[in-house]
Write a protein that binds this DNA or RNA. Sequence first.
RNA 1: GGGCGCAUAGCUCAGCGGGAGAGCGCUCGCUUCACACGCGAGAGGUCCCUGGUUCGAUCCCAGGUGCGCCCA
Length: 812
Amino acid sequence: MKPLYTPDGVEARWQSAWESEGHYAAGAGATREESYVICVPPPNVTGDLHLGHALNGSIQDVLVRWHRMRGYRTLWQPGYDHAGISTQNVVEKQLATEGLTRHDLGREAFVARTWEWLELTGRTIMRQYRRLGASLDYERERFTLDEGYSRAVTTFFVRLWDRGWIYRANRIVNWCPHHQTAISDLEVVHEEMDDVLTYVRYPFADGDGEDGIVIATVRPATILGDVAVAVHPGDERYAAAIGRHLVVPYLERHVPVIADERVDPAFGTGALKITPGHDPTDFVIGRDHDLPEPMVIGFDGRMNEHAGALRGLTQAEADVVIIAWLKERGRLVKRDNYRHAVGTCERCHTRIEPLISLQWWCRMEEPARPAIEALRERTVRFHPESQHRFAIASLEETPDWCVSRQLWWGHQLPIWTTPDGEVICALTEEEAQERAGAGVALTRDPDVLDTWFSSALWPFATLGWPDETPELAAYYPGNVNSTAREIIRLWENRMIWAGLEVMGEVPFADVIIHSTVLATDGRRMSKSLGTGVDPIEMIDAHGADATRYGLLKISSTQDVRFSPGAIEEGRKLANKLWNVSRLILQNAGDVEARVEPTALEERWILARIDGAREQVEEAWAAFDFATAANVLYHLTFDDFCDWYAEAIKPRLYEHEPSVAATAVAALERLLVLLHPMLPHVTEEIWSHLPGAQGRLIVSPWLEPDDRFLPDVGALERIQAAAVTFRRSGVQVVLDSDDERRIFAAVVRPERQKVTGDAGPEIARLQKEIARAEAMLANDTFVASAPSAVVDGEREKLERFRRELEALSTAEG
RNA sequence: GGGCGCAUAGCUCAGCGGGAGAGCGCUCGCUUCACACGCGAGAGGUCCCUGGUUCGAUCCCAGGUGCGCCCA
């Protein structure tokens, strides 16, 4: 063993040993019946590991390794998501460099090409998870587009269809002109943009042309799609206008003035032009007032045939024409600069066109109901609690789900149409044909399902559903799911209701919503901002153990800024552990672990280890990983190294067998506690233990051991004496031989340059005594404060007086 | 516009009714036979502001200021 611990090589060696020896496999090393199951959130098949994955992987791996050691039948399920729009995007970009579009290839060839590309460059994240030491059962990797998984998706869709929850409707959707597909609200990102707010006067149809109502719009081109002007019913400015008609500019169409409470009287002029074809709010208002829904912008984002002479123009070009038209006729009131948030596609950042199109939808009111129930009854619990409330609220107001996408990469809808217009939903084309009748020509719906539709099935489709496999029986329902906050509505809620729908049980009991790791300056981490931190670089530089430690240490119930210092702290912890192990092992010879404490510090460290065990168990059970990291850090540095190891050193050097045996036993326990967080360095040291047998990864977790509990505070007096000595050079008198021996071994007073000035220490103690005396002299305090607090103050006062006396005695 | 949260040492954060804490950074002293990725000591804080509750507030409540995230 070298003086400096180097994770290079060590980590890779253990990663391949653990995996090849089968310790990652579901149920490996199990000694009890209960299972413990976590499904990894399936990462994008085209993606790379980012810090969020690394944090989430560290969290899940701690839980999985801990439960594996406790003897549970653990399964940590790996796999990938096909990520419809972003994967298709990548391949289309690649085609573009060859001057091709997907339409040049055709659907079949395009999908084949995408598969080919994935085989070459996809699926990198599981390799990166291995480098983190993540003990996923890699043999069981699943992909949402695998044959079996696809059958699950189809089966689920048909089931929803049979439930009557799937329907097709013309609705306003978020249309991405670049991807030529509808996307869900959740795939739209809002970005601040500088715009112009144009104020336009619409004259009354029955007026003199001078009067009218002024509206404000950021998109003059949509004026052509106006079907009404709405005002707030309580807005006195416009009360008289309700029911009258206005002339829409350019097209000179006559439209009514209507009253609707959704109009904000404070925005613009308080009059809202209603364009149901191109604005979601207007669409809803239009439906309620039975207004027509003309569309003047096409799927390509340009003005369409309903825009008359403006057909074919971009919206910007149309804006210019319309504004000129308004100016000529004196109807342009003013134009103001206006900064506001605009919806853009999260993948390509193209401005979203809200427009009406025919899409497939899944009703949500009915499926959400049992999920809300499960959350209210806390059959599923989100952590932290604030996210639990958010999950319930988001399910309560969840709109119907647009499940169709106009893409090629994904699960094609199992829907066929006959020439007569009969719509058939079936598991297979054969079945559809059978139902339509032989010889009837069938046309399959070209759309694919939203990627999240397949993700919703992850906890059971990965186990073989819809087949009744042994894995499904053994590992469903799972226990924990851990993910980022922004994915609660996209994924967590849908897994919960889907699980209840097809399995009759929620897929897990606990959902951990982990911190978002921000850049050190507080901005979001992103490649485009250049604020990203590559976890693989962190692993290269400091090791996987250090990286895991650092991420867990900064994790919280809120967003956190990345801190390289935390990872360095982890590296120092690994090195410290390595070196204290060297000390013990170099002096233990062949002595094997035996708990044979013969001295105070040995009983003390065993008690401290048991205390830490309890704290760590509590913290992990509460998903508080930072607290556990902190407890383990101080147990190792302060208790084990600074006090225990220093205290036993003289006796260890003399090769007292019981000292060595107990030290090896204490070290073993420390390694067990640290293993879930720092798996590599602990396994490496474990392999050097005298008589090492088996792997730490499948060694049993510590049982509670309160035999030494009475000595858990046994070093307090010596530690106080050490502080006093180091500060003042004054040795206070200690009671027992054990105490004096430990003090001598740890403090090494003969080495210290003694100043011999007890003055500052005496002053400090006198100040403490004065403070405690003042508190106890306050009758209201003594009368009102809880007796434990008052007693505590009395005890402190006693102790300070004792210490002061000891100090004065020693000095004298 | 709606929701959630945060403001504590130079930095990153913990503490959340009874003496202000950790890691890093900084200063000083130590190459002591596990470790200089170490050991020891130290400096550094109106715990954002203003009120209120309380014997007692960094902690609870109200208002304010600043910042962040999510959603529309």
